[in-house]
């Protein structure tokens, strides 16, 4: 690990000011992903700003009847919150499908949004990777890409976003609240939060440098049945090959977001109109234009069959 200086801040304003002051700074909260990457020198900040003690650890009702989840709320606490379990079960289900108990005790809501891909070539510093080293190429295209993306990819990158939580949040129309170095607060719909890889896969979100996530807001509960099904190589503690987050109403209408297929949770609102017609119709629209490799082509039928399975569970 490269050496770095360290400071702890108490307010978001102090955090963004500290970021503006120091070159090569990164925020750290749970640290479960950042420190892992720093050990491998994939990330090498020269200054760490410890934001883990910011008073952003509450889940509060919003005026609109939704919930505002502080950026520092730990994954365990979010999954366990009585309101989340009752009204936003998909979020709770997605969270407990991810990582291990130890990691969920440290990982924060904002950190979960910002975690980096688990593409094996991003981790292997002997290999080219446009995300890790812009312009160096992509070893995943034409390499071992069984776990990687099938839609929204580019010639520069086929990495997936690894989070389960964001799949649920995307299905529930969450938005990300962030504050800039100048103190301006803005709300970014989760739908617009992640950047397509294009030619610049190292730029993953629309956040400006130093802009700090302060909360994630969930709109008022939509009701219905919430089912999150994750398909992975082992029964627990593994990243998704694919995952399906479904909210379905009595009349068969609903919403669906898919994980493990793209740089962001994949949701196509137009495809959801076909939910009453079944998994095949939905998947055809949802993953239209998918570009698979011989290793990850299985993801297309897997999404369809997993969606069929969760639709059957919803009826049962």
């Amino acid at each position: 690990m490269k050496s770095f200086t360290y400071e702890r801040v108490d307010t978001p304003a102090a955090a963004t000011a500290a970021f503006a002051r120091s070159k090569g700074a990164r925020y750290i909260a749970g640290g479960t992903n950042l420190l892992d990457l720093m050990k491998l020198e994939i990330e090498a900040p020269t200054h760490l700003i410890d934001i883990s003690r910011l008073a952003l650890d509450k889940i509060e009702p919003t005026a609109e009847g939704g919930l505002r989840i502080g950026a520092m709320v730990r994954n365990t606490d979010l999954a366990s919150d009585a309101r989340i379990r009752r009204d936003y079960g998909l979020v709770s289900r997605a969270l407990v499908a991810g990582a291990s108990g130890q990691l969920r005790n440290k990982a924060t809501t904002a950190g979960n949004l910002l975690q980096r891909t688990r593409c094996p070539y991003f981790y292997d510093t002997n290999q080219p990777c446009n995300k890790r080293q812009p312009g160096s190429g992509c070893a995943a295209i034409g390499g071992f890409n069984r776990t990687l993306a099938i839609i929204g990819t580019s010639d520069a990158c086929i990495a997936t976003h690894p989070s389960d939580m964001v799949v649920a949040m995307r299905a529930l129309d969450a938005s990300v609240e962030a504050v800039s170095a100048e103190g301006r607060t803005r709300a970014i719909p989760l739908a617009d939060f992640y950047r397509a890889p294009g030619k610049t896969p190292h730029l993953e979100t629309v956040l400006a440098p130093g802009e700090l996530i302060t909360a994630v807001t969930l709109p008022r509960p939509v009701g219905g049945k919430h089912i999150y099904q994750k398909v992975r190589d082992r029964a627990s503690y593994a990243f998704a090959l694919i995952s399906v987050g479904l909210v379905v109403q009595e009349d068969g209408t609903g919403r669906v977001a898919v994980g493990g297929v793209a740089y962001k949770p994949w949701r196509v609102e137009a495809a959801e109109a076909d939910l009453p017609r079944g998994a095949k119709a939905v998947t055809a629209k949802l993953l239209a234009g998918a570009k698979t490799t011989h290793e990850n082509a299985y993801k297309l039928p897997l999404v369809e069959r997993t969606l069929a399975s969760v639709l059957a569970q919803a009826k049962g």
Binding site: G31, T32, L35, D36, K39, L48, S100, Q102, N105, K106
Partner: peptide
């Protein structure tokens, strides 16, 4: 593993189990 994958480093901090390899002492 020193990467939060094996759990051998698990300790309890403020009543919660965490991977002590994936957290900085100064925090």
């Amino acid at each position: 593993c020193d990467h939060g994958q094996c759990g051998a480093c698990t300790v309890i901090v403020d009543g919660r189990r965490i991977n002590s390899c994936l957290t900085l002492a100064v925090m």
